[in-house]
Design a protein around this nucleic acid. Sequence first.
RNA 1: GGCCCAAUGGUGUAAUUGGCAACACGAUAGAUUCUGGUUCUAUUAUUCCAGGUUCGAGUCCUGGUUGGGCUACCA
Length: 573
Amino acid sequence: MSTAPDPSHDPAAEKESATEKLNFIETAIQQDLKAGRFDGVATRFPPEPNGYLHIGHAKSICLNFGLAKKYGGTCNLRFDDTNPSKEETEYVDSIKNDIRWLGFDWDNLHFASDYFEQLYQWAVQLIQSGHAYVCDLNGEETRRYRGSVTEPGQNSPYRDRTPEENLDLFQRMRAGEFPDGAKTLRAKIDMASPNLNLRDPVMYRIMHTPHHRTDNQWCIYPMYDWAHGQSDSLENISFSICTLEFENHRPLYNWFCQTLGIHNPRQIEFARLNMTYTVMSKRKLLQLVQEGYVSGWDDPRLPTLVGLRRRGYTPESIRAFCDDIGVAKFNSTIDVIKLENAVRTHLNEVAPRRMAVLDPVKLTLTNWPEGRVEMMEAVNNPEDPAAGTRQVPFSGTLYIDREDFREEAPRKYFRLKKGGAVRLRYAYIIDCHDVIKDDEGNVTEILCTYDADTHSGSGNSQRKCKGTIHWVSAEHAGDVEVRLYDRLFTVEKPDVASQEGSFLDHLNPESLRTAQAKVEPALLEVAAGENVQFERTGYFCADPDSQPSAPVFNRTVALRDTWGKMQAKGKVH
RNA sequence: GGCCCAAUGGUGUAAUUGGCAACACGAUAGAUUCUGGUUCUAUUAUUCCAGGUUCGAGUCCUGGUUGGGCUACCA
């Protein structure tokens, strides 16, 4: 490096600003915009209200809302509520909350059920133009006629009914003349198509089931393929972004729009999110909740948005994560470390630091003046000077973490050992001269002397020591419950069924440990939902179970632990 | 035995659309540090295989391999 290049003439920098990194969806959007296929960008997030949102949905939400924002377009929230047997208003509310919590707001709120009448009219249009027919085959027969992946299907015997007859039958289906399953309305496409979705797909089924919004107004309900694309079209969506499993549905999506002669959005598919050490399917999440393996949808071990929130994940960290993982069509599995890293990064910037002793052992300062209490000034957040400082009471009787003391230890052990010294954070350097044990040999009390010249920040002493540990003054300490969460599963891919086993076989028996911690006074005032860092330990969030002056803390994620890693690798003992 | 889609370091995503393979995370080594945190530095690749087109291929073509999806009146 001989000369510092002028940044304005740095070719590398120019290149960087000129070539913005686009994912494959953005590339497609820019091409379509340039070609004039669409006027602008209109997207939508289309959940079915039959469950809680999880981190995989967050990826889709960030994508759809993010694209709208990036291109100055709009993003709607639309509930795909076409199956009344599974859907409930409870889920509608939770989904709205989760999206807002994540930091997004929709331009328009819609329900597929609002389009039922329009959908019906369009179905009539397809019947009249000879593109749809009423079929009397039952489920079992329909399946048989469809053929298989290697064999073509056969035409339904009802395929050639006249438009008049079809119309009459369809009207009577709507009027409730037939029982559940007696008839369906099917699109007339091609029973020999290699794409199974095109083998005369069912558009409507008869279900005498009240709907969460339309109640008993309808007894015929549209299928996904018939409702989804048409809803997109009605809302003038330009890019209908969905997951990979709908790739084979795209020809049908386009067929409906084109046959109807209506606005045809472009469907683009991306790979859904998979993450190590967890499960993402609604079925499995439901099973974990219903069978009591976790405490509920908001159990902090679940990848649900309500679970992550309770665990202490911030919206910012989840958005950063979604941004970080990118979008592609490759079926990948993201290392959960990425998620943990995202929340560490954010919390490192914003979480106030506090001292908490999770596994307390008593430490007495034998040369401390009887009854004396000193207030120590502690920095609230070294990453944020504006967070200021606080006063922490210090006395001759303290608690430190059992992990931070050993009678004998290797040179690389920087914490307190018998005959050694350590710095008490924001206080004094202490020397350990003795240990008291119970009959079983457990350390019950550590005896030390403090070095009065080493008061934090005083500059009175040149004395240094390698280690610094956290502490809490016994008489001022609060007692709180701490819930130490770990991964729910012990294997990277619990989903990949081990031959005969179930994903439940891989549940981590230690995914939740509780501890009674001794904490500094400031921690007693933390309100539910607030994030803090317990110095040297991890990030914690006060749980909704917290009571005034009696918070319960959930461990969001531990701090990076170089020492623990060295131990795990056998480099030290 | 059909159709559709994908494949780039340990993980995930880029590559100005045919022009010197980049970024993040992880891992490793070191520096700094009153958090074994943070921060900083360094190291970490014959682009799944085989042919072909081309001055030039991660990118285009052909064949193969591997993985995913499709056979609900679910979405």
